[in-house]
Nucleic acid binder design. Structure first.
Lengths: 333, 333
DNA sequence: CTGAAAGCGCTTACAG
DNA sequence: CTGAAAGCGCTTACAG
């Protein structure tokens, strides 16, 4: 049916090897034969069979992406789709493909990893989260499978990763609060296990310290989850202790809950900032200022890093830091 | 490095053909050799090379998914990611893989389709939208490439598709309004080009007719876009004509805008229902009732339909209708 | 600059 | 029930 390299060779009156070389743009091919071959390719509307090429090359140019089965809540956040589009844009540039996999069962991720790697389907993996003592990372490291992690993992050794500078992003939020004259600034964070949580908390503390403001542990609450209820509870707890003039949070959902607590429990006006700039933030009352983490760029860079490794490019770094951007809205004005 | 079928054959003292047959679970293999081969497979931790298999089989078991480059707005909606997870869940069941592709440029979709199909990378495609005179559908049909469309396309001939019953879903919304005693019910819809828009409008009209309520064209506004501004404008236009007691909309974003127009332009309480049950709907004031379209199930069924076709299963239908579910909140109480 | 040959790791019709 | 052989459609070291 479809033309193969042999058909092209026949028409162009050369050997398949030569056709292959023309396609690979090998330098040692005469202009004349090159033209003849290209002519034949067009005539037959020939397209190389990627699978055959992959087999011969022992490389598929396919990247494997695991969509983690985190809480459904995360799907409210366009983070995943944005990261995925960013990855796709870069992958295309380099002639790579992306295969994704999702499962409802928490423990199937490792199974996929094994399946994809054992069967030699993909050249490398992209992980969208990293837990502490991540089984997937462990497996990939042990088997020397190339991979990149979105979000800095616990152990950075021998891993490629992309992330925001969470310390700096939170530092800047708190610094802004201080510039505006705030001194009583509370902090509401998510689960402590995440590096991201730690970094943001450090950023908060540092900004206070630098400006000579006492870090009051009672003004810091770290919740076990990124949701509204936690945000509400954290804010209530803080309000019982003292009424801050500003609150920095590590997630929009926490901020939404805090916002509700504020409106219900006090008449004071309290400035508040979120994180992740979810679409919901615009709809809050007041509209919520938030840190945009540039998820698409994270995906783009992740693909770049991984493909760079696969192509043995000389990259001097094992990670990229993607810039964040503070989106100011009513809640901090 | 990694074991191949030959290695297994050697250890089990059989031919590669036999190993292949054991893996394929061919019936005409004696129990003894089967056991020996399975033993050898375990011993070597052998896993078939999918690429080699694909080449021999002339089938990759890979499904190609095009993420359409619609307006950024659509990413606020978890629709895509939900459809994608649903697809993945079914594909896994059947040992299929899913490859996705996204591009910023509108016209690259067809390019991808061609690239993927010409290079024999994928066995079939899943399209996440269909425009009128869709170039992609046209191409796939012409080349007899198997594909399925999420959302009923204009021309149903020779295409597999999955969708909700948009007529019925909207009929039920309006019927509910009428049951609650409403008689002046307005309609705000999206772009007329979409089948979905037409079906929902028809459902609205039918419900009125069935209950003997006059269909007043001045109470129907069809906008050119699915966003808040359009919703706001549509609602203003309707309010200038007459103040309805209820409004049915074909999209949550339209409803959000309408909600704002209502709160700004009138003191009357007007019931309103959205569509798609976006995460934002909970956060409206009042929280917005909305129709959940069950996107994950749409994806699941799409994969089912396509894989059924690829496996030449006898399926009596060329489409699946996925149930919707009305989620009632304050806005219609 | 070009070709014949071997190889990538499977599957399967054919033969026994 | 099992094996030898050919084939899937490429690439590339080797030779000239």
């Amino acid at each position: 049916m479809t033309a193969t390299i042999k058909d092209v060779a026949k028409i162009a009156k050369v050997s398949p090897s030569t056709v292959s070389r023309v396609i690979a743009d090998s330098p040692r091919i005469s202009k004349e034969t090159k033209l003849r071959v290209e002519q034949a390719i067009k005539e037959l509307n020939y397209h190389p069979n990627i699978i055959a090429r992959s087999l011969a090359n022992k490389s598929t140019k396919i990247l494997g992406l695991i969509i983690p089965n985190t809480s459904e809540d995360l799907f409210k956040n366009p983070f995943f789709i944005q990261v995925m589009t960013g990855m796709s844009i870069y992958a295309q540039k380099r002639g790579y493909y992306i295969m994704y996999s999702y499962s409802k069962q928490e423990d199937e991720e490792l199974k996929f990893l094994k399946n994809y790697s054992n069967s030699k389907l993909v050249d490398g993996f992209i992980l969208l989260t990293s837990k502490k003592d991540d089984k997937c990372i462990e497996f990939l490291k042990k088997n020397k499978y190339p991979f990149v992690v979105v979000g800095r993992p616990e152990d950075i050794n021998n891993v490629l990763w992309v992330d925001n500078d969470n310390f700096k992003a939170m530092y800047n939020v708190v610094d802004m609060f201080i510039q505006k004259g705030h001194k009583d600034i509370a902090f509401i964070g998510g689960p402590k296990e995440f590096n991201m949580s730690k970094d943001r908390l450090e950023g908060y503390k540092k900004a206070l310290e630098v400006h000579g403001i006492f870090v009051d542990d009672n003004m810091i609450v770290q919740e076990t989850n990124f949701n509204e209820v936690c945000g509400y509870n954290a804010m209530s707890q803080i309000l019982k202790y003292k009424i801050p003039t500003a609150v920095a949070t590590t997630d929009d959902l926490l901020a939404f809950g805090a916002l509700r607590a504020i409106s219900e429990l006090t008449d004071k006006k309290i400035a508040i900032a979120g994180f992740n700039n979810t679409p919901l933030s615009v709809y809050q009352n007041p509209p919520l200022s938030s840190v945009d983490i540039n998820a698409e760029e994270l995906g783009y860079c992740a693909a770049k890093l991984l493909i760079g490794k696969l192509e043995n490019e000389l990259i001097s770094t094992n990670h990229y830091i993607v810039e964040t951007k503070f989106i100011e809205r009513e809640s901090t004005k």
